[in-house]
């Protein structure tokens, strides 16, 4: 590899942050599709939202506009709301069935 390429890889720039955001998001998607514990699924969704947040902040710094940062603040609040409602539904489910395994939710199927 040429020294300039290595230099640009070592210099942390927007690309690194965008890759980080996309990686977090992909890990979240992967985890959501693979795991079966409902709490872990909720954590994976958090991961996805945070990946989107990092992407927002990166673009926001790059563009020099504030809207992205405001968006991230709102997204954090929304994530918290979703988790709050999500966990309360999880409690309801656990009380009725004593399981948190998403694969066991199979009364409703065609």
């Amino acid at each position: 590899m040429q020294p300039e390429v290595i230099q640009s890889l070592l210099q942390i720039g927007p690309t690194h942050y965008l890759v980080l955001g996309a990686t977090l998001f992909s890990l979240g998607v992967l985890g959501f599709l693979v795991r079966s514990n409902i709490i872990v699924l909720l954590m994976c969704i958090e991961l996805m939202i945070n990946g989107a947040g990092i992407t927002f902040i990166t673009f926001c710094r790059q563009l020099g506009s504030l809207e992205g940062q405001v968006f991230v603040l709102f997204a954090m609040v929304v994530a918290a709301v979703e988790i709050a409602v999500g966990l309360s539904i999880v409690v309801l489910v656990f009380r009725n069935r004593s399981t948190l395994d998403a694969d066991k939710m199979e009364v409703l199927k065609w």
């Binding site: 996805m48 539904i89 999880v90």
Partner: peptide, 18 residues
């Protein structure tokens, strides 16, 4: 069934929102 529907709706809905 209502609980199960809710948990499925919540998980897919949050996934979609992300």
């Amino acid at each position: 069934v209502s609980n199960e529907a809710a948990i499925k709706y919540m998980l897919t809905g949050a996934f979609a929102s992300a």
